[in-house]
Design a protein around this nucleic acid. Structure first.
Lengths: 150, 150
DNA sequence: TATTGTTATACTCTATAACTATA
DNA sequence: TATAGTTATAGAGTATAACAATA
């Protein structure tokens, strides 16, 4: 019966993943952000102004796509395109005040959400869950690395 | 420091979610399936031939979208459209042999993947992880239900 | 020559609205 | 009148390829 236990656990993780994604998506939509655009804004918030090339690499998406995402974020007031100080080919994508405020709110909301989600669990229970989570993540990354080599 | 613990746990869950989705997507792509199309095929596998209306409700997507997804699945040989025996407005979407084979392979792969992911964990560790997972899922569903009422 | 970002083109998933054929 | 599915239209995310300006 081990096999079905494992499969059941995986199904539960996937179910959680779906529910969380829905929740995140709804939260972002309330700010007028899509998941992809939020990903960009998030990167800018943590690392400061970046060229589109850098954003493409950070987000793992084509340069063409970054053009579109930045267009949309400029149109909705989250970022601006500034000239790069030394490289005239490049543009620096920079958060506006609105973009910074939105990100700060998102950070706060994420903390509140995490609190709602975990604060009712007994500490040892959370501890055990978090530990298992680290195990699973480590195993998964190992599997991915092995698959890459193959 | 509780707050950052909670946030850290949430971040880890989200990280796991992203990695698993990548993995699933890659696996499906190997069969020529996208996540949305696989969702349809999955439903057909578990519940048998269905009308497009039923599929739309099951998958939670517009009727228009089902037309497109079924078109694509017909074109790639996973399903066929059959006349409904009693309602001439409706069509019954039915898995082909290829569709059934693909689904059986996916079921097997999912089991193998779950085994790879969890079999290296000590049983008590997995037990604790699965227990915590149930807690989190229950809390999340409760939160969603409360948000719906509001 | 190589790189940055854009335009051109195309595919997938998603939605609403209008319309056809049937209940 | 209501329902099943299609066509029409639109927007978001994704990709590759060709091209301009600049390194």
């Amino acid at each position: 019966m081990r096999l079905t236990d494992y499969t059941h656990a995986l199904d539960r993780v996937l179910e959680l993943s779906v529910l969380l994604n829905e929740d995140m998506g709804d939260g972002l939509a309330a700010y007028g952000l899509t998941p992809s655009r939020a990903h960009l804004v998030w990167d800018l918030h943590h690392r400061g102004p970046r060229t589109q090339r850098e954003l493409a690499d950070a987000v793992g998406v084509s340069a063409r796509n970054i053009t579109g995402l930045v267009d949309a974020l400029v149109a909705t007031g989250f970022v601006t395109r500034e000239p790069h100080p030394t490289d005239r080919r490049a543009t620096l994508v920079t958060l506006t005040a609105q973009g910074t405020e939105a990100t700060n709110s998102l950070v706060r909301e994420r903390e509140e959400f995490a609190h709602l989600l975990f604060a009712t669990m007994p500490p040892e229970r959370l501890e055990a869950f978090a530990g298992g989570l680290e195990d699973v993540l480590a195993t998964l990354k190992q599997l991915k690395a092995a698959a890459q080599t193959r």
